[in-house]
Write a protein that binds this DNA or RNA. Structure first.
Lengths: 253, 253
DNA sequence: AAGTGGTCTAGACCACCGG
DNA sequence: CGGTGGTCTAGACCACTTC
């Protein structure tokens, strides 16, 4: 860049790189297109591969890129808007909202889970695994914890494993009267099993949505859902307002 | 470890490191305590510093650690629960919820902003900057975009800059009838100016909360708030249920 | 087998904070 | 000033996908 290095605060190379790449993505690349490989890009910009990778990492974090080992780096489509808030006051599984039961089992709750469940401190909890698919993509993996006390009418552990059993727990849960629920969203990194379901590497950034389902007797169930942070935008429709449109591309003239 | 390396899928060193460190944090460290420096930790575990840093990065992303250049790495307190959803149907600035007006200006909207504002395509928008402080910590920085058409009664640009002007825009906005709002949450990285307000380095992971304020005539305003992803947990109280308690530490027996 | 991204190393220098 | 985390390099090898 010329001789004008008067910048008293020289921004890091990877940061500048990110800006340059971001503009290039807007102008010269279409969604789905594959970029040159990392070694060539690094050479082209005159930096080490590690530095180039730092820039790519951030762009992937922002949902601009998608990297797959053995395949390459491609331009990501706009993030998927995934509805999380408008299904007001419903038990899980009540609406056909893309959640698919996978399995269920009886386990002892971890310290963190029993803390969320509150004073009930049930000895056993049913653990239901579900996966959410939107537009053909696996966007979330959920673990739903239901204390045995919440669903007394449930058949014993002799029930067949698999989706059928998961559905049985959900069906039983829906018989309770739901008073309310509270939700929280935070950043996390995917555990190994969740990463597998989401087709990502372990440690991938995820949005962790924790929901407590409240009945008259306290917290009847807790759901911990992990959404792919790179491809998802969680939407909460606080009112009956129109849905947000899926980010139409402003085409350059 | 011993000689049992039968694991056909050897997990990455940094991943294993992260697990070991995480357990050490639970058992041997108190909140606020400073860890040994990176060079020593790397030596102690027999890995390169870059590898050690990869583990620390993930732990920081999960809110377990806090790193500050020139100071050191400390054990982070549990994430702050920041209420985002329960202030139902209110204009910004209506409740004393920790938001502090900083400044305001008149600008031309960027392509992304005018897309969010919808078909109105106003030529000018008022841009209000606010900061949110919770428990003494700056947790969020917001840019609120208000098309000039939404607040026709506002004095011209001769108004004094600074918080007073920001308050004037908010006051004018609150005269409209709010029909609803929709919100979305996604992962992003802090722009330079936001990072400064949040006392983080540029590129730090943030949760971007986008809110559209709807009136009878369309989208009257758009807010883009960036929350520190490392220290914040966004909470949405969908019902009048009790608040979630701030993660009491389970003491080992 | 060839090509991709993912992990790892052993150094170096820089920007920032504190005494 | 010394010590901290932040950036950067030039290599190497590994895991995975595709052909």
């Amino acid at each position: 860049m010329g001789t004008t290095q008067l910048e008293s605060v020289p921004e890091p190379k990877y940061w500048h790189l990110k800006t340059v790449l971001s503009e290039a993505l807007d102008q010269d690349f279409a969604v789905g297109e594959v970029l040159p490989n990392e070694r060539e890009l690094a050479a082209r910009f005159g930096v080490a591969r590690a530095t180039l990778r730092q820039a790519l990492e951030q762009l992937e974090l922002e949902g601009r890129l998608q990297r797959r080992r053995g395949v390459g780096t491609t331009v990501a489509p706009p993030r998927l808007g995934v509805d999380v808030g408008s299904a007001r006051q419903g038990w899980p599984g009540e609406a056909a909202d893309g959640w698919q039961p996978v399995d269920a089992a009886e386990t002892l709750p971890t310290a963190a889970v029993s803390r969320l469940l509150g004073a009930s401190t049930a000895t056993y909890v049913h653990t239901v695994r579900r996966t959410r698919v939107t537009e053909g993509q696996a966007v979330a993996a959920e673990l739903l914890y239901v204390p045995a006390a919440s669903v007394p009418g449930l058949p014993g552990i002799d029930a067949p494993a698999g989706p059928a059993r998961a559905r049985a727990v959900l069906r039983e849960l829906q018989r309770l009267e739901l008073l309310g629920q509270d939700r929280s969203v935070e950043l996390g990194s995917a555990r190994a099993d969740d990463a597998k379901e989401l087709d990502r590497l372990p440690g991938a950034p995820v949005l962790v949505v924790t929901t407590r389902y409240i009945t008259a007797t306290g917290t009847a169930a807790v759901s911990i859902a992990t959404y792919r942070a790179d491809t998802c935008r969680l939407t909460f429709n606080a009112s009956g307002a129109v849905d947000i449109e899926p980010t139409p591309q402003p085409r350059a003239s």
